[in-house]
Amino acid sequence: MRRRLMLMLGLAFIAGVATSQSEGMWKMRVHRAGGSDEYLVAEVDSVTFYAVDTLIAPPMVLVPAGVFIMGDGVAWCGVDEHEVTLTRDFYLGQHEVTNQEYMEALQWAHDQGYVTATTTSVQDDLDGSTEELLDLDSEWCEIQFDGAGSFYLRESPSSHAQEAYPDGYDPSDHPVKEVSWYGAVRYCDWLSLQEGLPRAYEHSGDWACNGGDPYGAGGYRLPTDAEWEYAAQYDDERIYPWGNEVPDCSRANCWDFHGSGEACVGWTSPVGSYPDAPEALHLSDMAGNVYEMSNDWWVCDLGTIPEIDPTGPDVGSYRMFRGGGWADDFCMQCAARGCIGGPGASSVDFGFRIAQTAGQ
């Protein structure tokens, strides 16, 4: 839990300050990131100061071990069908990691000397790695760095964001974007370091997870390809996380090709804006909003031989991305496996959610 140092300013004190002035009212001006916000002191009930010295992992749900058919016979790179057995319960992030969650972790990592940052980029600085974790230079990135040691959030100045939210929006609960696969697994390791858990990922070579055994990792990690699909279709082999109905704007934030042919939102939406799907696990945005990175290297055809706790190829050029994003309706099926990205790539609709093996 976060350790908080709290300073409470009582109403009596505030009233005393306000009434001590014969004319006008006191205002409080808070400065940060080159701007300022003003508040009427008389309207403030209390002020809480706290040090973010301990990170809190996003909420997670328990997914029980089980057996399922991976692939559905028709989805992109999901034509092959085979039985997969997952022998370990695991936890999966209830929602995609948000800008606020990532920024707090990033600030902690920067303060610890685990990353280096400029106003245009965040790079890894552990184990000799210098991989880019977050592209701050993109107009689509809602996390920024002031050049003096502090990260902050902003509304994206892009036309997509401005048209989607003409009256403005709060980016804190939107999924983090412009983060690379390296930046996603780095976030997992920051959480592990905070909790005294072993880091799951190597930060050199092929960045293997727990020496190639992600299911045995003690720390936080990305879900394997099999874990993601198993959770998305839990537990009735459904085509989409919400069932068998085609995507539309009531079910996911995507580009509604099957309906109006227009964007549902035109930008990301706050996590959890749509009904949980699959409802049995209370997971949100498993399809739509942002593509979600998995632990595995990408391969299209998985074959038909049954597998136990599969880990995907040992090497590759691309990482598997799942679930589709706000800018299209591709890869929305639980079994769709054709959406990929290089581990150093970032985009306006690339994001992730975390996982952890239970009982480790």
Rank of each mutant, 00 (worst) to 15 (best):
C249T: 14
N253S: 01
N289K: 10
V271Q: 13
W267H: 02
A280Y: 01
E245L: 13
E237S: 14
D225G: 09
N253F: 01
N244Q: 10
Y240A: 10
Y234G: 04
Y230C: 01
D276Q: 13
W255K: 15
S204C: 15
M293S: 15
V246H: 09
R238H: 10
P275F: 12
L222D: 03
Y215A: 14
Y291S: 03
P223C: 00
P247C: 09
A232C: 08
G211H: 11
D285K: 01
E245P: 07
S250N: 15
E245R: 12
P270M: 12
N295G: 08
E237L: 01
S273A: 13
D285W: 09
Q233E: 07
W207H: 12
W207M: 06
A287I: 04
R238F: 05
L283P: 07
G243D: 01
A277F: 04
Y291Q: 06
Y240I: 03
G211L: 03
Y291M: 02
L222M: 02
W297D: 11
A217W: 09
G272I: 00
P214M: 12
A231Y: 08
E229M: 05
W242A: 10
C209A: 13
E292C: 00
A277N: 11
E279F: 13
T224W: 02
E262Q: 02
R221T: 13
A226Y: 05
E202C: 02
D236E: 00
E245A: 00
G219H: 09
S269H: 11
R238W: 00
E292Y: 03
P270N: 14
A217N: 15
P241W: 09
D285E: 07
D213S: 10
T268S: 11
H258S: 14
S284A: 13
G218K: 04
V299D: 06
M293E: 07
Y215D: 12
G266V: 04
W297M: 01
S269D: 06
E237R: 08
G205C: 07
G261S: 04
C254Q: 09
E229S: 06
C254S: 14
W228C: 07
F257P: 11
G205Y: 06
M293P: 04
M293Y: 09
L222P: 07
N289R: 04
D296W: 02
S260F: 01
L283I: 14
E227H: 09
N253C: 08
D256A: 07
Q233I: 02
G219E: 06
E262F: 00
E292K: 06
M286P: 05
L283T: 05
P223M: 07
M293H: 10
D285H: 03
T268K: 03
P214K: 11
V265L: 05
N244H: 02
E229A: 00
V246T: 12
